[in-house]
Simulated assay, not measured.
Amino acid sequence: MTPATQIAAVLPYDPHTARPWVARHDVEGVIGLPKPASQRPAPAGRSSRANGFVSCSPR
Rank of each mutant, 00 (worst) to 15 (best):
13 Y>W: 02
14 D>M: 14
15 P>E: 07
15 P>C: 08
15 P>L: 07
15 P>A: 09
16 H>Y: 05
16 H>A: 13
16 H>G: 12
17 T>H: 11
17 T>Q: 14
18 A>S: 02
18 A>I: 03
19 R>C: 02
19 R>D: 11
19 R>Q: 13
20 P>N: 03
21 W>Q: 03
21 W>V: 01
21 W>L: 15
21 W>H: 03
22 V>W: 04
22 V>I: 11
23 A>C: 08
24 R>A: 13
24 R>K: 14
24 R>G: 09
24 R>D: 11
24 R>Y: 06
24 R>Q: 12
24 R>E: 10
25 H>P: 09
25 H>W: 14
25 H>M: 12
26 D>A: 10
26 D>E: 07
26 D>N: 09
26 D>H: 05
27 V>Y: 00
27 V>A: 01
28 E>S: 01
29 G>V: 12
29 G>C: 01
30 V>M: 05
30 V>W: 11
30 V>G: 02
30 V>D: 06
31 I>R: 09
31 I>F: 07
31 I>Q: 11
31 I>P: 04
31 I>T: 08
32 G>I: 00
32 G>Y: 01
32 G>W: 03
32 G>R: 02
32 G>M: 02
32 G>T: 02
33 L>Q: 05
33 L>P: 01
33 L>G: 06
34 P>V: 09
35 K>F: 01
35 K>E: 03
35 K>T: 01
35 K>Q: 10
36 P>W: 15
36 P>N: 15
37 A>Q: 13
37 A>D: 14
38 S>I: 08
38 S>M: 07
38 S>H: 11
38 S>C: 14
38 S>G: 15
39 Q>P: 06
39 Q>W: 02
40 R>G: 03
40 R>K: 08
40 R>T: 04
40 R>H: 09
41 P>V: 09
41 P>T: 04
41 P>R: 04
41 P>G: 06
41 P>L: 04
42 A>E: 10
42 A>N: 04
43 P>I: 01
43 P>T: 00
43 P>S: 03
43 P>Y: 01
44 A>T: 00
44 A>C: 01
45 G>C: 02
45 G>F: 11
45 G>Q: 07
45 G>A: 13
